[in-house]
Design a protein around this nucleic acid. Structure first.
Length: 348
DNA sequence: AACTTTTACAACCGCATCATT
DNA sequence: AAATGATGCGGTTGTAAAAGT
């Protein structure tokens, strides 16, 4: 079925509304109430499209609209609702009295979305972007004082950054270092031997600083450099699998396939993934760097402890807070699902 | 001070859905 | 049931103001 345009566009004014137009619209609606938008411009004497009038009223002129900065509570609500509903701005707006869907949408796109991205959070899924983590740093920090001959970057080589097995190994090594230093040293020796022997016999490794995200190139022929790189990747994959196999000899897998030391297996009951909240009291993410300059969590998550104070729902300082403070607080609101195998405490 | 770039947000557009005839 | 109208919604654009050079 064909649809006629909502209004005759010929001769109708567009663009920003003038104060005079606003007054005409307000006066008219005060007298007749909102609604019947198509007829409204003509009846009110406005050279505007009815749709434009409705938008101007609902998004700007309505007396119950709250203007000014979003409060911490509002921001928190938006983020939480968005994680549940997605871009259902009108539904989100319904939960925020005085705020319009348009305003929330704009605020999301210009503030919250960017902030989440800066903090390593995917604004669509609300999940931490672990692909931004530097696993090399993770492993280095876990090993801490490893022999200088063990090149962690080489070990990681071309592995995808978000490799659950590697995360498991990081956790395993961290746990071992804490629980069984003797065994930890034996591990290191094995790793070292394994790495040295395999690195000597295989093709050169990719540059440690190579951005793994750039590796996802499309290969179109079998003779291009990309293919060569891919072959190296396969070699590294076999190295890595061999490494994993060696590791597994003295480890076992938990119910979810995560690698844990056999001596500690009984301490890992089957349980759902931890819902990790970065609230100040519960996590102290800031201490991740304690005694460890390598670890790079700070680069992807701001520190909840740096927020001005714990949230006080009745506080009034909110509107005068800085963007940084909001950013800090914002990240503390987000819940991260951390793989069971990766114990954040191990990196503190 | 002048110019350029970035940011913030009001407004527009097209489509979907619901209501009415 | 089909056609049409009214309204709502979400993505996108335009532009003024602010920030940077």
């Amino acid at each position: 079925m064909g649809r006629s345009p909502c209004c005759d566009k010929n001769g109708l004014k567009k663009g920003p509304w003038t104060t005079e137009e606003d007054n005409i619209l307000i006066n008219y609606i005060q007298m007749h109430g909102p609604g019947n938008w198509r007829a409204l411009p003509k009846n009110a004497g406005l050279e505007r499209c009815g749709k434009s009038c409705r938008l101007r009223w609902t998004n700007y002129l309505r007396p119950d609209i709250k203007r000014g900065r979003f409060s911490f509570e509002e921001e928190e609500t938006i983020i939480q609702l968005h994680s549940l509903m997605g871009n259902k701005w009108s539904a989100i707006a319904a939960r925020l009295p005085g705020r319009t869907d348009n305003e929330i949408k704009n605020y999301w796109n210009t503030h919250i979305r960017k902030r989440l991205l800066r903090n390593g959070i995917d604004p669509v899924t609300h999940a931490p972007r672990l692909d931004l983590l530097d696993l090399s740093s993770l492993l280095s920090s876990a090993l801490c004082n490893i022999p200088s001959t063990l090149n962690v970057s080489n070990l990681l080589g071309t592995q995808p950054l978000l490799n659950p097995q590697m995360l498991s190994i990081v956790n395993t090594l961290s746990t071992l270092r804490r629980e069984n230093p003797e065994m930890f040293l034996q591990y290191l020796q094995q790793i070292n031997l394994l790495c040295n022997s395999q690195m000597q016999t295989q093709v050169p490794i990719s540059q440690p600083n190579q951005n793994p995200l750039q590796n996802n190139q499309v290969c179109t022929t079998s003779s291009d450099p990309c293919t060569s790189f891919f072959n190296q990747t396969q070699v590294m994959q076999s190295n890595f699998e061999g490494f994993l196999s060696n590791m597994t000899n003295i480890s076992c897998l938990n119910s979810q396939g995560n690698l844990i030391p056999s001596s500690m297996a009984e301490n890992f009951p089957s349980q759902p993934n931890h819902m990790f909240t970065g609230l100040p009291e519960s996590s102290s993410l800031q201490s991740l760097n304690n005694g460890n300059q390598n670890f790079g969590f700070d680069s992807v998550m701001s520190t909840p402890l740096s927020s001005p104070t714990h949230l006080n729902s009745s506080s009034t300082y909110i509107n005068s807070s800085t963007e940084d403070e909001r950013e800090s607080y914002c990240s503390s609101l987000l819940k991260f699902e951390i793989p069971e195998s990766l114990d954040i405490n191990d990196f503190m």
